[in-house]
């Protein structure tokens, strides 16, 4: 073994340690949940499960509450994503392309969604919703999810629109295309990575949202994270691990499907409008 290690060189070894540390810290908790989900018996202090089994999967997947929460969460996340796109994309385009009074002021006002502590914001929203009769309604739940998505659904696509060179739109106009055709055939395809990344953020943040839903959606809107909270409290950790995987699966699938577009530049440009 010694000759092999020496032949790798010090740099490689350090790099390998970095990878180990990275995997341990960031992926360790997730790996642990995966092992836990497929274990039948895993008593302390064994390092790996003693018996592998799928019994908790059949338990979790036959719970009525779990199944309905999955379809409810996906339904809400779809509505939230579509609504956010429809509402925010025009604004994003305007911020990137049109000169209008106070545009900077409007742009940065979306930072307010992050500056006020979420829990406090949800409580105030609940008070407001109570007065206008939005408690325990689908619209109320959708609106409270949109609180989390307004900012990046505006900022990331705005940065994407802005990174397209004006000349490309202008040359399309010069050959006679109308403004809507230019937008549809030139601007939109080029801004698609930004819009896609923002939509994925939106979809996943809606799937993830728990506190706001708890405040305005109880008792009728028990989404996946809310069921997760009760599973954490009431069932053994194996059941929690199984449900964790079910909840994380859409994340992994979406990220794999869009991995061509999800990159550091597209995402971070949204947080520093230049």
């Amino acid at each position: 073994m010694g000759w092999y290690v020496r032949s790798l060189g010090k740099r490689k070894i350090i790099e390998f340690m970095v990878l180990l540390l990275f995997v341990f810290f960031f992926l360790g908790p997730l790996l642990n949940l995966t092992l836990l989900a497929f274990s039948g018996k895993w008593q302390f202090p064994a390092m790996l499960p003693q018996v592998w089994s799928l019994e908790w999967w059949s338990f979790v997947l036959t719970q009525e509450e779990v199944l309905s929460s999955i379809s409810l969460s996906f339904g809400i996340a779809t509505i939230v994503t579509i609504a956010s796109i429809v509402i925010c994309i025009p604004a994003a385009y305007a911020f990137a392309r049109i000169r209008f009074p106070l545009s900077r002021w409007f742009l940065f006002s979306f930072l307010l969604t992050n500056a006020f502590p979420k829990m406090g914001l949800y409580v105030s929203i609940a008070v407001l919703f109570y007065q206008v009769g939005l408690m325990n309604t689908l619209l109320g739940v959708v609106l409270i999810h949109i609180v989390n998505t307004l900012m990046f659904m505006t900022w990331i696509p705005a940065a994407a629109f802005k990174s397209i060179h004006l000349a490309q739109e202008e040359s399309a106009r010069d050959v006679g295309a109308g403004p809507f055709r230019v937008f549809w055939h030139v601007t939109l395809p080029m801004a698609l990575p930004g819009i896609l990344v923002a939509s994925i953020f939106t979809f996943l943040s809606s799937l993830d949202e728990a506190q706001g839903t708890f405040l305005v959606g109880i008792p009728d809107f028990k989404t996946m994270p809310l069921v997760m909270y009760s599973i954490v409290e009431d069932y053994p950790s194996t059941a929690g691990a199984v449900f964790s995987i079910i909840m994380t699966l859409p994340t992994i699938v979406l990220l794999l499907a869009a991995r061509r577009f999800v990159n550091a530049d597209v995402m971070s440009s949204g947080f520093q409008m230049k």
Binding site: N32, L33, D208, M228, M247
Partner: peptide, 18 residues
């Protein structure tokens, strides 16, 4: 990228179990 997209409840649950 992965941790950015993992639901907070799941990550915390993973940390507890780890």
């Amino acid at each position: 990228f992965i941790p950015m997209f993992i639901p907070a409840v799941i990550a915390t649950y993973g940390i507890i179990n780890m």
